[in-house]
Amino acid sequence: MKLNDEQREFQSLARLVSERQLAPLAPLADVEDGFDRDAWEVLREHDFVGLAIDEEHGGLGRGVVTGSLIIEELARNHASVALCFLVPYIFAAALADSDDLAARYLPKLASGEALGAFLLTEPGSGSDAASITTRAELNGDSYVVNGTKHFITNGDVADLGLLYARTGGPGGSGISAFVLEMDTPGVTIGRHEQKMGLRGCSLVEVRFENARVPVINLIGQEGTGLRVALTGLDFARVLVASLAVGLAQGALDMALEYAKGREQFGRPVTSNQGLQWLIVDQQMAIAASRELALEAARKVEEHEPDALQYASMAKAFCTDMCMQVTTNAVQIFGGYGYLRDYGVERMMRDAKILQIFEGTNQIQRIAVARSIMGRE
């Protein structure tokens, strides 16, 4: 995909920031297993956190293509903080038609003063988002919310949340969306999950016990919440695809640099044709994935008819590729790849969840199949 001058400038800046400021933070964040505040402050320092939010609300107003370029560069060295880059895009998409809520909350997200969380997943509903049971009952000028959300990224440090709760009957048409202030009485943080990867951000349970959310914080109309959630997920899937590309590229670059300096049987290991072909195959897979991810981003940004199909294809294809490339990067390091000293094992652990969250890759294939069959 051909980039314009501004996009190339953003890409170059993000790569520099990633290499110089984020790379040293990633190993420590992996050990500490919690939100990497220092890395987040780096994103704030360079105005990346407001990229998705329009200028009227204090952001830079750049589209998902530019966002994809930036998240790829961030993920080369620190996938956990790159994941935080998704949330402003999801909020911006959710509040696009809600002028009052946008005016009240987007400036805080654009400046990085507030962190956001996406409150959809529940213990009994993962891929089947339409089956959520958290309930929001209208009571005067508020909705009273009861229920439990889990696997909420950075829910313990978030200031704002996009909350999805049932206001009507069963199915997707009974779900509504709200902007939640996380310090609302009745909102508590439960279990902190111990994760295999992406340990530079937290993953928690969020509980609601008679928490009151003002009526004015309802996004759109009652019953439109699932549509709001799916719109945000379309943006998220494209960005996750580019995150996967960056993570894979970072792991392969690290493995190649290591291989260039290693000798076995009296000659450089890079002289082995088997290794050369392995590296070439991985680079070809990354290059193909990058083009698919950027094309999906362009289609989503320009609201093309097949944008959702491409978002699902990019998410599935790029994250499967990332798992393969990071696994092979560990193999290239040999026994050293299994040690924490070199970082590729962290990248391999980070890669696995990309195939699962924001809609499993099996669900993405179902979505693509339906899109293809529907045109026949």
Rank of each mutant, 00 (worst) to 15 (best):
M1N: 05
D5F: 07
Q7A: 10
R8V: 08
Q11C: 11
S18Y: 13
A23P: 01
A26F: 07
P27D: 08
A29I: 03
W40V: 02
E56Y: 08
V65Q: 07
I71Q: 01
A75S: 13
N77Y: 04
P88R: 00
P107Q: 03
L115M: 10
T121V: 13
P123A: 08
G124Q: 15
T134H: 01
A136L: 01
I152S: 00
A158C: 11
L162D: 08
M182H: 02
V187K: 00
R191V: 14
K195H: 10
K195F: 05
M196Q: 11
M196H: 09
L198W: 07
R199S: 04
F208Q: 09
V213I: 08
P214F: 07
L218A: 04
L226P: 02
V228E: 02
T231Y: 09
T231D: 14
L233P: 06
R237S: 07
L247K: 03
M254L: 14
Y258N: 08
Q264I: 14
V269P: 03
W277D: 13
Q282N: 15
A285W: 03
E291V: 13
E291Y: 12
A296Q: 01
E304K: 06
E304W: 06
L308S: 14
A311M: 08
M313Q: 09
A316P: 03
A316H: 05
C322N: 14
Q331L: 12
Q331G: 06
I332R: 00
G334E: 03
R346I: 11
M347A: 13
E358M: 02
I363E: 14
Q364D: 14
A369L: 11
I372G: 07
R375V: 14
E376I: 15
